[in-house]
Amino acid sequence: MTMVRLSELAMGQQGIIEDMDAEEPFRQRLQALGFRVGKEVRPIRQALFGGPLQVRVGSVNVMLRRNDAALIHVWAEC
């Protein structure tokens, strides 16, 4: 397993959250929606023109922008 940023995962590729660089209050919002160390995340799709990512974490689907997703470090599954 290699450590990458969430924004670098391929669509459908699973990762396990290792660390989040996000500052408060964004960090708190991430946590409230289920982003925590050790949780599995999976980008599902990306919107056109470099738009946001749809990411699944647990049973929840969220959208977040690529630059914000880059704040989340994950262990990529091969």
Partner: peptide, 8 residues
């Protein structure tokens, strides 16, 4: 930062 839930 933008974080929006996409509910079922």
């Amino acid at each position: 930062p933008l974080l929006i839930e996409l509910p079922p």
